[in-house]
Amino acid sequence: MPYQVLIVEDQAMPRRLFEIFLESSQQYERVDSISNASLAINIVENKKVDLILMDVCTALNESGLDAAEAIKQKYPHVKIIIVTSMPEYSWIERARNIGVDSFWYKDSEKEEIISVMDKTMAGEHVFPDTTPVVQFGDTTNHALTERELDVLKELTTGDSNQEIGDRLGVSAGTVKRHIENILLKTGFHTRTELVSEAGRLGIVIK
């Protein structure tokens, strides 16, 4: 009996691609396709779902990771593969912590999605070693430390250094120093420029 797959993807073309992959596969059958991750748990409650292909940034700004966490808490037997094209640094670790089964980058040349699905249903956990390398100013996203990425993510909220420091548990001065280091590494001149580029590249998403 084919595995029942729920597709959660807000982009029409990638969603259609996944649907085509499933249609051409005899091992998998599509249950439903939705664009809003917050509805996924309701569908899992009402229908038999074995596997979910879950995007992270879905319709109406609903987070696929939040939805995956809720589903895994209530339905741990449902396997979830997070699919994304964004090189956001914290998603892989969060996905592991939630208990997501696999993680796949849409533009990955290493492995096709069907292969990842096969391995996941076989009980394997397929996770990339690291996020894709993205040119970020004069450097790459991999040149930033984890703390710097934390600060960069908080910068996108537009809050002050003090507010950012309170959230991260450090002083405003420390936040300022991290920002200065990032600016030095990337060659950007202002925090606005920094945030704009980081957001555009998808390196940090809050």
Binding site: L155, T156, T157, G158, D159, S160, R191, T192, V195, S196, G199, K206
Partner: peptide, 9 residues
């Protein structure tokens, strides 16, 4: 500037 960043977000 922070307001601009919030709007950008």
């Amino acid at each position: 500037m922070n307001e601009q960043l919030k709007a950008y977000k």
